[in-house]
Amino acid sequence: MLSLRSAFRAFSRAPLLSLLSVTTIAFSLFAFGLFGLVALNIRNALRTVEERVEIRAFLADKTPVEQIAAASDDIAKFPEVEHVDVVTQEQALARAKRELGEFKDVFESEFLPASLDVKLKPGFRDPNTVRRIADRLRALEFVDDVRYGDEWITQLYRLRNIAGVAGGVLGLAFAAVAIIIIGATIRMAVLARAKEIAIMRLVGATDWFIRRPFLIEGSIKGIVGGTLALILSYVAMRALQQYLHLETAFFDQRMAMLGVASGALMGLGGSAVSVGRHLRKV
């Protein structure tokens, strides 16, 4: 209780220093949050793209309907396959007209082949699996040709992997910067109170007692900074939505809380290191 009070007293005693540390924490976490949002939205975008991953096996002309139905049943039993749609020539034509309305006239004749549209289960939509399934379909005698988003899918996956690695590396770098800044501001706070600490030791205050207010102070600053960063991230995201007309997602409640908690953890870690080092020296 006393230490909580003295932590708050530290705020009021050095408002500028406290403000500085809170804002630096907020900005480092904000940078972290912005990157997190980018990663989150790339991931969401990829997910919707992935959902559209389909393998289309075009069927030879005049393939008997029964054979198509039997093949469709067989393929549906592959463990990787979610479901199979049979698209007749008429349906293919209708779809083409719907998707390319302006060029309606081009599709008068029945030159669009029927196809089996194969959709894979989530987790099996990576380029390797897609290629393997495509090869199996191509081997069927009544399949003329197989198409899938070949190059395109590979590129997307590469992008996602790059985003993931970059996110991890940048995130860690930002976290390190935040911890260093917190450590530095706490060190300033410790130095500002060096005399008080010296007297505390002289009259027999325990190390833990001396440390505690700084740890609490660091955590509180981390929490405040984290909350501020969350608000800033939200504002930034709304601004992007408005000016770029982008459909974007925000962190869900659990991730938001995780962000604030990691702010608290950074504050705690930074101040623990800083206070520990200073107290060993005095």
Binding site: K195, E196, A198, I199, R201, L202, V203, G204, A205, T206, D207
Partner: peptide, 22 residues
């Protein structure tokens, strides 16, 4: 131990030339 140093100092009175007041 560090803990006992704290305990010991609670039973000592220490004064310096430069007062060391807050």
């Amino acid at each position: 131990s560090p803990r006992d140093i704290s305990k010991l100092r609670r039973r000592l009175g220490i004064v310096f030339q430069d007062f060391r007041l807050l």
